[in-house]
Design a protein around this nucleic acid. Structure first.
Length: 547
RNA sequence: GUGCCCGUAGCUCAAUCGGAUAGAGCAACAGCCUUCUAAGCUGUAGGUUAUUGGUUCGAUUCCAAUCGGGCGCACCA
């Protein structure tokens, strides 16, 4: 519909001698400004040195000849020079049929057909369980991957698996210390060790198999491997609880094995972007791009810092030929990704296909009490516990609910509450209500669900409003996908539930005295159920039939 | 000190490249259940969009300064 009007207006403008005008439509907040509105006359006013309303009038008289009046029931000029369009109700009623025909596919778009997207997220190091701080990223990534798929992309879900570097050594030492403590409680625990209880579990598991065999051993391999595989199993288990499975686990160590890291180092040295100092290799950072000082990419021990493999990894992703490459990080990594992309550019690669999503941190609280979730402190609130406490639906809803740039305030108490205070239920309740009506129809009004509706009976304001909202679903997905903002889906679903509840309240669906109207309204219910369910699918929450 | 993000109703947050009277939910107050789920609906109240300037026909949105909060600023990742 937007496209139709955009075309018509562009056409009208060309007739008026104006080429390449940028015509943008808004959905006015207020119904009295129509269904679609454009400010094109206002934006052209300066350029043409004419009054906005005069321009609007000229466009309108051009449109009057070309526009389909059965589709657009009314046009008007309002305010400073807005052009408002009123879409005929019949359009929305027709869309009802579309929703029912397309079913689970309603809202899917082929806009990015044949395009490949890569989404890398979670990528937690296997040094411990996922904690609640990871939750936001975990759930955001899932929703974004789904959004992209709905928008036509072929999506690769990827996890960057980092089993090298300091932290793994630290893990091994921690496990070893807990192992030794089984025999000698005085055995010193490393200063930077991981203090969580899961380390004791790992040590106990090692003891179970090897008994005292490793006592006093200097070889850390067994401890490292035991810790790594245990932690990674835990991580995968929790991801699975949220219905997430990655297609690719990209192993950092493969970048060493296949020589990509060395190649990159050589490239930096050859192009004199890197230099040696104090036994380390430094990357020159450009002040003009906002960097203050050069960064070490290879330590004096000969080991690369994390930046280097990260750069090689991104180069690998670019070379795999994706049309869109997305990384999701928390704001604590907000600066490092810039360094990584800088390095990738300096190595001669185009980073324009890489989009980085930085989400702000989460404050987790129980009512007034702020909960800690850091890995260092003894007691962590793990993501697994959170899921057990409030359920996977609430977890995903709350983490996706807000824009990524806001500091998310997550009230566990509220999220776990089974009441009208909890926003998850507002949505799910709408779905469950519809299911109740459908059950009633099946049990008491046999066959009505399969009747053909007489759409001319749909004319109540609440019915049309509901249909208007439902019809906006495909565009909403497109919008949310292109801006990578899944919280927009939740805002939309909220609106949908709101419109449904109002419709439900004012209009009885099943009326034994009026079969044809009941049949038409049943179709509206089916369509609302479908849109809600499709939206739930994207976020990843369930569509309960009863509550 | 410096870089990024943020500051909107009592609370948590929306607001589609700058648009029309800034919207929801919760909390508060007043109503609505012999009829498909009251986890719902209707109404009332609640705002100098942190502050001050600037750009613009028009600013929550863009720019500058100030105040306040979060996260970074390692030869950790």
């Amino acid at each position: 519909m937007k496209k139709y009007l955009t075309d018509k207006i562009s056409e009208a403008l060309v007739n008026l001698g104006i080429e390449n005008a940028n015509v943008i439509f808004d959905k006015p907040k207020d119904q009295k400004f129509g269904d679609l509105s454009t400010n094109v006359a206002l934006t052209l006013a300066k350029e043409l040195k004419q009054k906005p309303r005069d321009i609007a009038q000229k466009i309108l008289s051009e449109l009057d000849r070309s526009i389909d009046k059965t589709l657009i029931s009314k046009t008007e000029i309002a305010g400073a020079g807005f052009l408002n369009f009123y879409i005929d109700d019949s359009y929305y009623v027709k869309e009802l049929g579309n929703i029912l025909t397309l079913g689970d596919k309603y809202g899917r778009s082929s806009l990015n057909k044949n395009k490949k997207a890569d989404l890398e997220w979670v990528s937690a190091n296997p040094t411990g369980p996922l904690h609640t701080g990871h939750g936001r990223q975990v759930c955001l990534g899932k929703a974004i991957a789904n959004l992209l798929e709905w928008n036509g992309y072929n999506v690769t879900r990827e996890y960057y698996y980092n089993d090298a570097g300091n932290q793994m050594n630290n893990l091994a030492l921690s496990v070893q210390a807990r192992y030794e403590q089984i025999f000698n409680t005085e055995f010193p625990f490393p200063e930077d060790g991981y203090t969580g209880d899961y380390i004791k579990d790992i040590a106990a598991a090692v003891f179970e198999v090897r008994k005292e065999e490793l006592k006093g051993s200097k070889n850390l391999d067994v401890f490292k491997n035991a810790g790594e595989s245990y932690n990674f199993r835990q991580i995968k288990k929790v991801l699975q609880m949220l219905g997430i499975s990655h297609d690719v686990f990209f192993n950092e160590s493969s970048l060493y094995a296949n020589g990509e890291i060395d190649k990159l180092i050589q490239k930096f040295i050859d192009s004199q972007i890197a230099y040696e100092k104090d036994g380390a290799l430094w990357l020159k950072m450009d002040e003009a791009e906002g960097f203050e000082k050069d960064k070490v990419i290879r330590k004096n021990t000969g080991e690369p810092t994390y930046r280097l493999p990260d750069m090689a990894y991104h180069i690998d992703k670019i070379e795999r030929g994706f049309d869109l490459i997305i990384d999701i990080f928390g704001s604590d990594h907000g600066d490092t990704y810039k360094e990584v992309l800088y390095g990738v550019r300096k190595a001669g690669f185009d980073t324009s296909k890489i989009k980085v999503i930085i989400h702000q941190m989460v404050t987790l609280r129980k009512g007034e009490e702020i909960l800690k979730m850091s890995k260092r402190s003894g007691n962590v609130y793990s993501l697994e516990e959170l899921i057990e406490d409030i359920g996977a639906d609430a977890v995903q809803f709350f983490f996706v609910m807000r824009g990524v740039n806001t500091h998310l305030d997550f009230d566990v108490e509220l999220a776990g509450e089974k009441s009208d205070k909890n926003p998850v239920y507002y949505l799910q309740y709408a779905h469950a209500r519809i299911c109740g009506i459908l059950r009633n129809a099946e049990e008491n009004f046999s066959g009505w669900l399969n009747e053909n509706p007489d759409n001319s009976l749909i004319k109540e304001a609440e019915e049309i409003n509901l249909l208007k909202t439902l019809s906006g679903f495909p565009e909403e997905i497109e919008n949310a996908a292109s801006t990578l903002e899944p919280h927009k889906i939740i805002t939309f679903l909220n609106d949908t539930a709101d419109k449904f509840h109002k419709f439900y309240h004012d209009n009885r669906v099943l009326d034994p005295e009026n079969k044809s109207l009941s049949v038409a309204r049943l179709k509206i219910c089916l369509a609302a159920k479908q849109v809600l369910k499709n939206g739930f699918n994207i976020i990843g929450i369930s569509a309960p039939e009863r509550m």
